[in-house]
Computed example of a mutant assay.
Amino acid sequence: MKNASLFLNVILTIAVAVLYYLHFKDGQPEAAPVSSAPAEAKGRAIVYVNVDTLLTKYDYFKDTQKVLESKRFQLENDLAAKGRNLQNKVAFFQQKAPTMTQEQGRATEASLQKEQQDILAYRDRAAQNLANEEQSKNKQLYDQIYDYLKKVNAQNKYEFVLGYTKGGGILFADPAADRTKIVLDGLNKEYKNKQPKK
């Protein structure tokens, strides 16, 4: 969860930087006329989204975590079953070893070692596939949040949308600039609308 939070924080920061760059790349600011009276400068809004809240309450993230957790659980059960099966074969071999010829014993031992290596290779492949799927889901999560923020920013013209997380890089955030609920409600609404009707 902490890695996902850090990942989402980094991604939101990158998204904000890209939005900022895209907005200001076309035109250079014109030189302002020099005035003798000081003028109050008013920039566009800087708002933030609480990443921890977003991760715990965004339905897409919760559904994705459930699917990945189910796959992890299934993999662990599968590996445990394969391990028990191998242990049974080893125990059977140890019982029958005294009655086997040396050649039969070596062949059976080699077969058991190969089966153990196959199980380890299967575990590594499955873990890598699961990690790749998790990375893909994190990218989809980032894309959904980025696309939504881009759409919302077209209406609100925020200069920055920061990702706030307790203990992160932002030490204080004014609650008046918190847009977490608005962004979360919008993301959940879009996600719900994309789901097949039951």
Score class of each variant (00 low, 15 high):
residue 146 Y to D: 08
residue 13 T to M: 08
residue 112 L to H: 05
residue 87 Q to E: 03
residue 110 A to C: 02
residue 36 S to A: 08
residue 169 G to Y: 05
residue 186 G to D: 08
residue 119 I to M: 08
residue 64 T to F: 04
residue 149 L to N: 04
residue 74 Q to Y: 09
residue 123 R to M: 10
residue 61 F to W: 04
residue 119 I to L: 13
residue 51 V to F: 07
residue 101 T to L: 02
residue 85 N to M: 06
residue 151 K to Y: 10
residue 197 K to I: 03
residue 45 A to T: 11
residue 31 A to N: 11
residue 112 L to M: 02
residue 78 D to E: 14
residue 46 I to T: 12
residue 17 A to F: 10
residue 117 Q to S: 04
residue 56 T to Q: 02
residue 138 N to A: 11
residue 67 V to L: 14
residue 108 T to R: 07
residue 121 A to N: 10
residue 101 T to P: 07
residue 75 L to T: 03
residue 144 Q to V: 00
residue 194 K to E: 09
residue 160 F to Q: 14
residue 116 Q to A: 10
residue 29 P to H: 09
residue 156 N to E: 15
residue 18 V to G: 04
residue 64 T to S: 12
residue 47 V to E: 12
residue 23 H to V: 02
residue 91 A to E: 09
residue 3 N to S: 15
residue 16 V to N: 15
residue 172 F to E: 08
residue 109 E to Y: 09
residue 126 A to Y: 01
residue 64 T to D: 06
residue 28 Q to W: 10
residue 124 D to Y: 08
residue 26 D to V: 03
residue 178 D to N: 10
residue 107 A to L: 05
residue 98 P to E: 02
residue 162 L to P: 14
residue 146 Y to P: 06
residue 79 L to K: 00
residue 105 G to W: 01
residue 177 A to F: 13
residue 85 N to W: 03
residue 186 G to R: 12
residue 47 V to G: 13
residue 155 Q to I: 09
residue 147 D to K: 08
residue 178 D to P: 09
residue 158 Y to A: 15
residue 59 D to M: 04
residue 51 V to S: 12
residue 57 K to G: 11
residue 99 T to V: 11
residue 92 F to G: 00
residue 32 A to F: 07
residue 18 V to L: 10
residue 134 E to N: 10
residue 108 T to P: 10
residue 121 A to P: 00
residue 8 L to Y: 02
residue 66 K to D: 13
residue 192 K to P: 06
residue 57 K to F: 12
residue 184 L to Y: 02
residue 57 K to V: 01
residue 63 D to S: 05
residue 9 N to C: 06
residue 128 Q to S: 15
residue 145 I to S: 00
residue 137 K to Q: 03
